[in-house]
Simulated assay, not measured.
Amino acid sequence: MYDLTGFQRDLLYITAGLDDPHGLAIQDELGDYYEEEIHHGRLYPNLDTLVEKGLVEKSQRDKRTNEYSLTRRGEREIQARADWEAEYITHDS
């Protein structure tokens, strides 16, 4: 996951956390987080990068809607990142 941008990492986390991860739902969730509109020209090329890297799988729901889901590799990468972060971030003061 070290080679992903922060935006791509956020896409991966949102895809993992949504009950119905399709393009517009992911776009809305990112817009809420970033507090700005996320344009298609930014969203879909980055989702395609995650697909190319084998972290996300893309399927077609209908002629207009793509669905996205994490692959096993994507799940492992998220877990590895969480483990790595836990080494440096402690919640006990």
Rank of each mutant, 00 (worst) to 15 (best):
Q60W: 10
G17V: 04
H39S: 09
K53V: 01
L70G: 10
H40V: 09
L11C: 14
G17P: 00
L4H: 05
T49Q: 08
L70W: 10
N66S: 14
Y33C: 08
E85K: 04
D83F: 07
E52S: 08
D19V: 12
N66A: 15
E35I: 08
L11A: 03
D48S: 06
H39Q: 12
E75Y: 05
I38P: 01
S93W: 11
Q79R: 15
N46P: 01
R76Y: 11
R9F: 13
D20N: 15
D48A: 08
G74S: 03
D19Q: 12
R64Y: 13
L47R: 05
R9C: 05
L18C: 09
I26C: 10
Q27T: 09
D32L: 15
Y68R: 11
I78Y: 01
D28A: 13
G31I: 02
A16R: 13
E57A: 11
T5G: 02
E67H: 09
L4R: 02
Y2R: 13
G74L: 04
Y33H: 09
R73N: 05
R81S: 08
Y34N: 03
G41P: 03
E52K: 11
P45Y: 02
L55C: 02
Y88R: 11
Y34L: 13
Y68P: 05
D92M: 11
N66Q: 08
Y68T: 10
P45W: 03
P21N: 13
E37Y: 11
E85D: 07
E35P: 00
I14W: 07
I78N: 02
G17A: 10
T5D: 04
H22V: 15
Y88W: 14
R72W: 01
R73F: 03
H40N: 09
E36P: 02
G31W: 02
D10I: 03
V56K: 00
R76K: 11
R73A: 01
D48Q: 10
A82C: 04
L18R: 08
I89V: 15
Y13H: 05
L55E: 04
A25E: 13
Q79F: 07
Q60G: 01
R73W: 03
Y2N: 15
R76Q: 09
E52L: 00
D19L: 13
H91W: 09
I26Y: 06
D48I: 04
K58H: 02
H22C: 10
Y13V: 13
S69K: 15
L18V: 12
D3G: 02
R42S: 08
G54R: 01
R81Q: 10
Q60C: 06
L12H: 07
G74D: 05
T49N: 10
M1F: 12
E35W: 05
H40K: 07
P21G: 14
L12K: 02
T15I: 15
R76E: 14
T65R: 14
Y68N: 08
D92H: 14
D83Y: 09
L30P: 04
G41N: 14
Y88K: 04
P45G: 09
N46Q: 12
